[in-house]
Amino acid sequence: PEDEKKAKEALKRANGDEDKAKEILRKLGVDPDRAEELLRRLR
Protein backbone atom coordinates (compact mmCIF):
# COMPACT_ATOMS: atom_id res chain seq x y z
CA PRO A 1 0.00 0.00 0.00
CA GLU A 2 0.94 3.64 0.40
CA ASP A 3 3.37 3.08 3.28
CA GLU A 4 5.15 0.38 1.34
CA LYS A 5 5.69 2.74 -1.59
CA LYS A 6 7.06 5.32 0.83
CA ALA A 7 9.40 2.75 2.33
CA LYS A 8 10.79 1.73 -1.06
CA GLU A 9 11.24 5.37 -2.00
CA ALA A 10 12.93 6.14 1.31
CA LEU A 11 15.35 3.25 0.89
CA LYS A 12 16.18 4.45 -2.60
CA ARG A 13 16.78 7.99 -1.37
CA ALA A 14 18.91 6.68 1.48
CA ASN A 15 20.98 4.54 -0.91
CA GLY A 16 19.98 1.40 0.93
CA ASP A 17 20.92 2.82 4.33
CA GLU A 18 18.13 1.55 6.60
CA ASP A 19 18.74 4.03 9.40
CA LYS A 20 18.51 6.92 6.99
CA ALA A 21 15.43 5.39 5.41
CA LYS A 22 13.82 5.09 8.83
CA GLU A 23 14.54 8.75 9.48
CA ILE A 24 12.99 9.72 6.14
CA LEU A 25 9.88 7.65 6.87
CA ARG A 26 9.57 9.24 10.30
CA LYS A 27 9.61 12.66 8.67
CA LEU A 28 6.89 11.48 6.28
CA GLY A 29 4.75 10.66 9.28
CA VAL A 30 5.06 6.89 9.20
CA ASP A 31 4.95 5.27 12.64
CA PRO A 32 8.51 4.22 13.62
CA ASP A 33 7.52 0.63 14.43
CA ARG A 34 5.64 0.37 11.15
CA ALA A 35 8.62 1.84 9.30
CA GLU A 36 10.92 -0.72 10.88
CA GLU A 37 8.60 -3.55 9.89
CA LEU A 38 8.29 -2.30 6.31
CA LEU A 39 12.03 -1.96 5.88
CA ARG A 40 12.59 -5.43 7.31
CA ARG A 41 10.14 -6.83 4.79
CA LEU A 42 11.86 -5.03 1.91
CA ARG A 43 15.29 -6.29 2.97
Rank of each mutant, 00 (worst) to 15 (best):
residue 12 K to A: 12
residue 33 D to S: 12
residue 18 E to H: 15
residue 28 L to R: 04
residue 29 G to M: 03
residue 7 A to F: 05
residue 34 R to H: 10
residue 2 E to Y: 09
residue 2 E to K: 07
residue 37 E to L: 08
residue 9 E to G: 06
residue 21 A to K: 01
residue 35 A to Y: 05
residue 5 K to F: 12
residue 38 L to R: 01
residue 14 A to Q: 02
residue 9 E to F: 09
residue 23 E to N: 06
residue 1 P to K: 13
residue 35 A to M: 07
residue 20 K to Y: 10
residue 11 L to F: 07
residue 30 V to H: 03
residue 2 E to Q: 09
residue 30 V to R: 01
residue 22 K to A: 09
residue 7 A to H: 02
residue 20 K to R: 11
residue 4 E to Y: 15
residue 29 G to R: 03
residue 41 R to L: 12
residue 36 E to A: 12
residue 3 D to N: 05
residue 33 D to E: 14
residue 38 L to G: 00
residue 19 D to K: 14
residue 14 A to F: 04
residue 38 L to N: 01
residue 5 K to W: 14
residue 21 A to D: 00
residue 19 D to A: 15
residue 34 R to W: 14
residue 31 D to S: 13
residue 21 A to C: 04
residue 39 L to P: 00
residue 43 R to V: 09
residue 29 G to Q: 03
residue 2 E to I: 09
residue 25 L to T: 00
residue 4 E to G: 05
residue 32 P to G: 11
residue 6 K to F: 13
residue 22 K to T: 05
residue 12 K to G: 06
residue 35 A to W: 08
residue 33 D to T: 12
residue 36 E to H: 06
residue 23 E to V: 07
residue 22 K to N: 05
residue 15 N to L: 10
residue 37 E to I: 09
residue 13 R to F: 12
residue 35 A to F: 08
residue 30 V to T: 03
residue 38 L to A: 04
residue 34 R to K: 13
residue 4 E to V: 14
residue 32 P to K: 12
residue 26 R to I: 15
residue 41 R to D: 06
residue 18 E to D: 05
residue 10 A to F: 02
residue 14 A to I: 02
residue 40 R to D: 06
residue 17 D to C: 07
residue 39 L to E: 00
residue 10 A to P: 01
residue 34 R to V: 14
residue 1 P to I: 14
residue 9 E to T: 08
residue 6 K to D: 06
residue 10 A to S: 04
residue 43 R to H: 06
residue 37 E to Y: 06
residue 23 E to Q: 09
residue 12 K to F: 13
residue 39 L to D: 00
residue 21 A to H: 00
residue 37 E to H: 07
residue 42 L to Q: 03
residue 33 D to V: 13
residue 18 E to L: 15
residue 12 K to E: 11
residue 21 A to M: 04
residue 21 A to F: 06
residue 23 E to S: 07
residue 39 L to N: 00
residue 6 K to Q: 13
residue 38 L to H: 02
residue 23 E to A: 11
residue 3 D to M: 12
residue 18 E to M: 15
residue 5 K to D: 12
residue 21 A to P: 00
residue 34 R to G: 04
residue 9 E to H: 11
residue 15 N to T: 03
residue 40 R to M: 10
residue 30 V to M: 15
residue 1 P to T: 14
residue 1 P to W: 15
residue 26 R to W: 09
residue 11 L to Y: 07
residue 34 R to M: 11
residue 42 L to I: 11
residue 14 A to R: 02
residue 21 A to S: 02
residue 19 D to R: 14
residue 1 P to H: 14
residue 37 E to W: 06
residue 5 K to Q: 14
residue 5 K to V: 13
residue 12 K to W: 13
residue 29 G to N: 04
residue 39 L to Y: 03
residue 40 R to V: 06
residue 34 R to A: 10
residue 26 R to S: 11
residue 3 D to I: 09
residue 15 N to G: 12
residue 4 E to S: 07
residue 24 I to N: 03
residue 21 A to W: 03
residue 28 L to M: 15
residue 31 D to Y: 04
residue 6 K to H: 12
residue 32 P to M: 11
residue 12 K to Q: 12
residue 28 L to T: 04
residue 43 R to N: 06
residue 18 E to T: 10
residue 24 I to T: 04
residue 21 A to Q: 02
residue 33 D to M: 13
residue 28 L to N: 06
residue 37 E to G: 05
residue 6 K to L: 15
residue 9 E to D: 11
residue 40 R to A: 10
residue 38 L to D: 00
residue 26 R to Q: 13
residue 19 D to L: 14
residue 42 L to H: 03
residue 31 D to E: 11
residue 26 R to G: 08
residue 18 E to N: 07
residue 42 L to G: 02
residue 30 V to P: 00
residue 13 R to D: 09
residue 13 R to T: 11
residue 39 L to Q: 00
residue 20 K to S: 06
residue 36 E to C: 10
residue 33 D to I: 13
residue 32 P to H: 08
residue 14 A to K: 01
residue 9 E to L: 11
residue 22 K to H: 06
residue 2 E to T: 12
residue 39 L to V: 06
residue 6 K to R: 13
residue 24 I to S: 03
residue 43 R to L: 14
residue 12 K to P: 00
residue 37 E to T: 06
residue 40 R to L: 10
residue 40 R to F: 05
residue 29 G to T: 01
residue 26 R to A: 13
residue 6 K to M: 15
residue 8 K to R: 15
residue 11 L to N: 01
residue 37 E to Q: 10
residue 4 E to T: 10
residue 15 N to F: 11
residue 14 A to Y: 04
residue 29 G to D: 03
residue 25 L to Q: 00
residue 22 K to E: 03
residue 34 R to C: 07
residue 14 A to G: 04
residue 5 K to A: 14
residue 37 E to P: 01
residue 13 R to V: 11
residue 19 D to G: 12
residue 29 G to E: 02
residue 24 I to F: 10
